[in-house]
Design a protein around this nucleic acid. Structure first.
Lengths: 189, 189, 189, 189
DNA sequence: GATGAATGAGCTTTCATTCAT
DNA sequence: CATGAATGAAAGCTCATTCAT
């Protein structure tokens, strides 16, 4: 093999895409993504067949990174509240330390250019979370509602919390508290 | 921009833009918006200086329509819970009967092409709601948090509720109940 | 109507395309065709949906021009030989006075980018010629072979004749004679 | 260009190019030619300096193959008619058994990318044929016309014959007969 | 004011060619 | 020498905007 596809270059393209999509949404140009990644315009297309494929890959990449960020320190033995709080606070932490990533995800999610299949694939990264919450519902701790519904509530309240903290970093701790409080009460009865 | 002769044409353009933006987001073309409105491509620009201005106007238009939809039947004398439930359920109602409008709003909101000024102007339509909620916070009924935070929670839970109902129309009533239950618990302590 | 599509502009584009395709074949760029026609690059696409459509239109346009060139002076009452000679010599005349047109046609015909449908449409312009030749076959003057076969022979020998004259203009008259002689003998028995 | 190590690879590239050029003309990509030949994209350029050189080489290669196909069984002692018929029928035979080769030649010949020098070189393969025909002209058997003219007529009528047979294989024998009849009469007086 | 042809900057993508491996 | 990733100059085409009619 002449020169193998470089994982670093692929990574650089995804990182660049994260920044540029965070800034310009789906109006981000492939040229600017390539440029920011430090590769030639054509190179982007040896890593991603076309812009659409790049967007799907970017979404999956970011969602996976988010899922990964929620694992360290997960209290497998703790009660449901602590476990869910861990997920909530990790989500906040990831969002705060990856503002572009979070923004890019939300731009893509609302762009109308994400394939349903991509959304479905992204879900897979949160399999374990879903199972835990199912058990929590069965045990009566969480309100009896579809998993997707409960998860969406946590996610959106976490998003609101992140956005609030980004506007008033000084009140980060307080927002994390009322954010989780709101989320927890919303999903319990 | 001269004073537009025809309010009907302006309205037609906004309605058309709603559909097309719901479908294609900010990638909607001015040509397709004009066509669907039944006017010439150039005509769009006598009503909206350029695409950016059109998008801002569309967002304001839709947010205003939403605010208007929340007024009829508003129980000025009822307790905070009933008043907020009225707002919540009206929001759901508007969203269900205006899927394109709701989608267009969310596409625009996450597109990165909405001016901060536009968002601020849109807020103005919800002045009364905000005042009511401020009083509710002062009275201790709502949790002590910034208005924007509380309002965002209601809004997003309402959005989740609408999306759930759109997927399972048969369970509309149940989703409206657990949706409001979640929202109410989230903003109270 | 604002500004009607201009037949002159369409004509200019086809003439320009004739030159550029004669020179570069299907590698002719839309940009160079537009430029030579004196219109903006984008304008080409308001007259021809895309490059493929332009090529089909160009082929039809040139074949029609050729057919038209064969009509003036056609001796309806003369015998078959004179009638066919008129066609042959008119073909030669058109080819000599439109070298680019003839070249463009041959480039397109051999390019692999002409649709069968386009070829079929072009045939229609030669309907009358075909009928006359059919009668000539029935009358026993021409050799009993398919029309397409006989017509192709005339055409190709005419092409060879034109090419020979283009190389040696001084011997034009002689080539016209031996060219027709060859063609006539080829299709008679 | 260094001396190629592998004649097989060069041959594979030419065969591949024949297929791909037959299909796509000069729009054939070097990548697709290399792929079909089973070699890497870059390898093509160690055998042919660039695309233009490849096309010239391909044309020469195919014309040589055609010339070679006309030699076996050539009746050196027979009269001119039989000798020319042998050439004509061999040409037909080669064309029918090498449809891609014939098509590729015609695509290249009409593409505008063949160098005059290349055409001249290709002629060299038909030196013997040319000499024979010159003698035939001198002897008065063939019409007194330039060699190139006479040869072109034979070639084009043979092409027409091949194309006719490709459309109606059932009438192959008949087309071969009327084809040669036409060609012979065209070049004699 | 309404129309839609005209414009050309800009976009995505292709592809001949180079060159690190 | 073989490989195929890397390159970047085009190419075809789109589309917001202008402006002649």
């Amino acid at each position: 093999m002449a020169r193998p596809l470089s994982p670093e270059k692929r990574e650089a393209l995804l990182q660049s895409a994260t920044q540029v999509v965070a800034e310009h949404g789906v109006l981000a140009t492939t040229a600017s993504i390539a440029k920011r990644a430090g590769v030639a315009e054509g190179t982007l297309f040896t890593y991603f067949e076309n812009k659409e494929v790049l967007f799907q890959a970017l979404y999956l990449h970011l969602k996976q990174a988010l899922a990964d960020a929620m694992m360290p320190g997960y209290p497998h033995q703790a009660d449901f509240r602590l476990r869910i709080e861990h997920l909530f606070q990790s989500y906040i932490g990831w969002g705060l330390s990856n503002p572009s990533g979070r923004l890019a995800v939300s731009r893509l999610a609302a762009s109308g250019r994400l394939l349903d299949e991509t959304r479905a694939q992204a879900m897979a990264s949160f399999q374990d979370v879903a199972h835990m919450m199912e058990r929590a519902v069965q045990s009566g701790v969480l309100v009896n509602a579809p998993m997707a519904f409960l998860y969406a509530i946590i996610e959106r309240i976490a998003d609101i919390t992140i956005e609030s903290i980004e506007k008033e970093p000084a009140n980060a701790e307080r927002y994390r508290q009322i954010g989780f409080h709101a989320a927890w009460r919303a999903i319990t009865s």
